[in-house]
């Protein structure tokens, strides 16, 4: 039996355009999804539960719209969901990790899973900060994850822990194989698995699964931000450049000439 906690964030769909307004990023009519990397983490948690038994609890920090992401997670097979209400919580990885760690600690998971980073803020900081706060070792960017006893995984070292995670991880293109004792955090890289879609019976069942909301006052946290956003702006615009005409040979010659004389990159 494995108790698995999956950290999850609701993000903009990656096909969405981002419009910056004086009030912040325009969220009107935006499509929100589970952060794609968190989807891999969730799928892996569900597969481990199906194989080894146990439960999957999804935990998020977000505003009310994030409930939809939690319902989706419940529909694909998570058993329970917790949302830390983002109201009053500063937009800062330190404060968010503090709140999430406070919620996860009493759950005492055997395995904490999360995406490598969120495609919106892109820091990849919160899950690792949670692991540090909970004193868990970690392996990042997993491409393959196996959980078992030292004997089952063929580990020769003295069995200090009942169970270990054997992780094939992406190290900037190299693949590194590491073993670490549970409880631990493993973050998911793209390619870990192929996430499933929610089924209709799954969606029906999800409606009856427990989903609770926790607010900051219940956690007894002051939520002091360590960093603060002082400006938000769109990327510098890029004008379309020159089309190079002619035969392929002429195009290639002209392009190399322009790269030398104009762009000065050759």
């Amino acid at each position: 039996m494995l108790k698995i906690v999956v950290l999850l964030k609701q993000t903009f769909d990656t096909e969405e355009k981002i419009t910056v307004t004086p009030q912040g990023v325009d969220e009107r009519d935006a499509k929100f999804v589970i952060n794609p990397y968190d989807e891999y983490a969730l799928e892996e948690g569900i597969r481990l539960k199906e194989k080894l038994g146990g439960e999957v609890i999804v935990v998020t920090c977000g505003e009310e719209r994030a409930q939809e992401a939690l319902r989706t997670a419940l529909a694909v097979g998570a058993d329970e969901a917790v949302r830390v209400d983002a109201a009053g919580l500063p937009d800062d990885s330190f404060a968010i990790a503090e709140a999430l760690a406070a919620v996860i600690k009493p759950l005492a998971p055997d395995l904490l899973l999360a995406g490598l980073f969120a495609v919106d803020t892109g820091s990849g900081s919160v899950a690792l900060q949670v692991a540090e706060r909970l004193g868990l070792p970690h392996a990042s960017a997993a491409l393959k994850l196996t959980v078992g006893s030292a004997a089952e995984l063929g580990l020769t070292r003295p069995a200090e822990a009942q169970r270990y995670a054997l992780v094939e991880r992406d190290a900037e293109g190299d693949t590194e194989t590491v073993a670490l004792p549970l409880p631990a955090l493993v973050t998911a890289q793209q390619g870990l698995n192929e996430p499933r879609y929610p089924s209709l019976p799954g969606i029906m069942k999800a409606k009856r699964k427990p989903l609770r909301t926790v607010d900051l006052s219940e956690l007894g946290l002051s939520a002091a931000a360590r960093t603060v956003r002082t400006a938000l702006f769109p990327p510098p615009p890029r004008a379309a450049g020159k089309r190079i005409a002619g035969s392929p040979a002429e195009q290639a010659a002209e392009l190399v000439k322009l790269l030398q004389s104009e762009a000065k990159v050759l």
Partner: peptide, 23 residues
Amino acid sequence: HTGVGRDLAPRVAAAYGAGHIAD
């Protein structure tokens, strides 16, 4: 902000009560 840097920075930040600005 490399494979190793982004793996270490958040844990050091949490351990030392520091903020982390990434990437």
